[in-house]
Design a protein around this nucleic acid. Structure first.
Lengths: 292, 292
DNA sequence: AAGAGCTATAATTTAAAATTATAGTACTCA
DNA sequence: TGAGTACTATAATTTTAAATTATAGCTCTT
């Protein structure tokens, strides 16, 4: 199996487009096409197929892409280490904005403090984090998960509760605790359709027979709190959020905790820096029992 | 960096001979020569140099050889896994005869019992074990070590005492314990010059001012005991040895224990099976306090 | 139905890698 | 000491592989 086939395939798998991948490789499109045909031939497996005019990786293709990225990264890292004496292949890590702001600060500082490794931070929601980790484009991630994902090793990192955020003068602000039924008839600031938090809220409120309406659709805790601060409606956010002046947070015990996990691809972690970061994260974990 | 350069270099580094390596690769000697020249050129480092008419790897060359073997093995393992569905790349393990016979049996049985991995056993003395592990031709080893070895990660596995073996009728057979000075004037069955056990005996007896002479030079515990059984002389062996009929063993407390270690190359263990075997070995370890 | 935006194949050119042949080097042994 | 051996390194040549350009063909868009 020739390494240039793998390198070409790694680029192609990112682009899923022969023309553009060939451009980034600085070869002609037919040359790339032949390389990938040869790789598939040699492996005896089709690596992609067409769906309409789009190209989609086969299952084998996805595995080959992961391997190709790994193998190419290892070669690069080795050469760099041979020439400079020490490795500085970055650890690629992905998490969401909320996790970065409220859960990961100390661990990341500690990791960077040792100066042994270089850290490449990526930001992404749950789906992107899982995708980056599964496809080998990130070594590790931290994200909220509520179900197992095939091929992913997940270790519990933190459980975060949910709070209802209301204006100081609101009737519910006087209460120490609130229930979902208290939300009857309210307008809520919620994430757009399809986002996990929105789905969870929908389901829980429907279960309780609570009728409510959308005040604003906003993406991200900060934006949701901003709109709530403008008085457009109430909102429900993770309890690690700093609530802006004029608003107060009240625990919503009925809502399930958000389970953050440290995720990596199943199997051994090849990258020493990534392994070190994983160990730091797991040791900093607050476990499933408490909040941060 | 092209993978065929690495594959060629891995073979060359084993043979240290262009002519023979080219034969095993089924290419002409000049073709191999050019491949390796290109690899060296691409890396900007000479990979070998001549000492007389022998070829010797440079330090960079040795590191490249390790990487080349790893990278080629990974590619093979991946393809095998892709085609057959599950990996069965063997775990390569090296230890000495004594360790196999008296220390490793249960752990190896247990490892094989799970049927998850295939084990490739190699036999070698300390130097060969260390060499195989350092050069990436074995994932793990168990061997006696009395000093750190650069690039090698060693974890204590077992400490084995030393016993003096004498014929049943011998004057020392009546004693429960013996000291080195009791050996004054005796003929001893010892390993050949240069072997670690011989060096240790030499030094310890010389320290005590004991004069002795060589009865037989024999390699290996069993052979040493065999000659001792023939009455050629006394011998000193590890206390895990089964002493043949007609001989008795007496502890030699003055001699230092032999410290067996689980060794691997420094850095993360890429091979999942090797990692599993290491964990088994370490958990089966009797630590520095006791014998097996 | 024409056209845009690709992929895939063919024809041709260009480049690379193989081979054979041989000069050069270090050591061995009569 | 000088012919012989066993090997490496380079050169010349042939063979093979991989690039390029050109273009046919497919799928969705407008």
């Amino acid at each position: 199996m020739r390494s240039d086939w793998l390198e070409a395939f790694a680029v192609f798998a990112d682009a899923m487009n022969f023309t553009r991948a060939a451009e980034t490789l600085n070869i002609s499109q037919p040359a790339l096409h032949v390389k990938i045909a040869k790789l598939a031939d040699w492996l005896g497996e089709p690596l992609y197929h067409r769906v309409g005019r789009a190209l989609v990786l086969t299952q084998a293709g996805a595995r080959v892409a992961v391997f190709a990225r790994e193998q190419t990264a290892r070669a690069e890292a080795f050469v760099a280490e041979l020439k400079t004496g020490s490795s500085h292949q970055p650890v690629e890590f992905c998490a969401g904005e909320g996790a970065y702001l409220h859960l990961l600060g100390p661990t990341i500082s500690k990791f960077l403090g040792s100066r042994e490794h270089v850290l490449q931070l990526l930001t992404g929601d749950r789906d992107r984090t899982v995708d980056l980790v599964l496809s080998g484009r990130a070594h590790l991630g931290v994200t909220a998960l509520d179900a197992m994902v095939a091929g992913l090793a997940a270790e519990p990192f933190a459980v975060v509760g949910q709070v209802l955020v209301v204006p100081e003068g609101h009737r519910l602000a006087r209460r120490a605790r609130v229930t979902l039924t208290d939300l009857e008839g309210e307008a809520l600031v919620v994430p757009p359709q399809g986002r996990p938090h929105r789905q969870m809220l929908n389901r829980m409120l429907m279960d309780q027979g609570v009728s409510w309406r959308v005040a604003v659709e906003a993406q991200g805790w900060d934006l949701m709190l901003h709109f709530a601060g403008l008085g457009t409606g109430l909102t429900v956010v993770n309890d690690f959020c700093r609530v802006p002046p004029g608003l107060v947070a009240r625990p919503l015990g009925e809502l399930p905790g958000v389970h953050y996990h440290v995720v990596r691809r199943a199997g051994p972690l090849h990258h020493a820096g990534a392994a070190a970061l994983r160990d730091l994260l797991v040791s900093a974990s607050t476990g499933p029992a408490g909040g941060p």
